[in-house]
Amino acid sequence: MPPEPNPFRPPFLLPPMTLLNSLLTSPVRPAAPAAVRPVHQLNETEDAFALTVQLPGVARDGLDVTVEEDVLRVVGRRAWTPPAGWSALHRETTDAPFTLAVALGQAVAADRIAAELRDGVLRLSLPKVEAVRPRRITVA
């Protein structure tokens, strides 16, 4: 009677081509990421935060910027899809949306936020609310 196959046999003991073949024929493919964290840079001055976010392929229609408490959220959706008849030969980008959440640590004046999206770069100016801006006290 042949021995029972060991279910815990590590794959590296399988014949060399077995693992390769199973990888090539497996219906499971690595899932595309649900979201991508974009390259960004946050600067802070006494009066405001300045955030620059790289969002290649995102147009104004696909951009959402929200501020809740002291958390800024940026979501950028890439609307471009290949025209009919185009087939992908090689892909290095993903279609997943860009998402970024930044805890600013203090409140900003949501009604005075300025945003500019140009050539795939979002520039945000986020003025701090008056109450949290440092005040210089003159000593008499």
Partner: peptide, 19 residues
Amino acid sequence: PVDVYSDASATHVRAALPG
């Protein structure tokens, strides 16, 4: 990053170069 596409008459290269 670049993506490369093909259709009946041309090859198309799309490069992500923001800003």
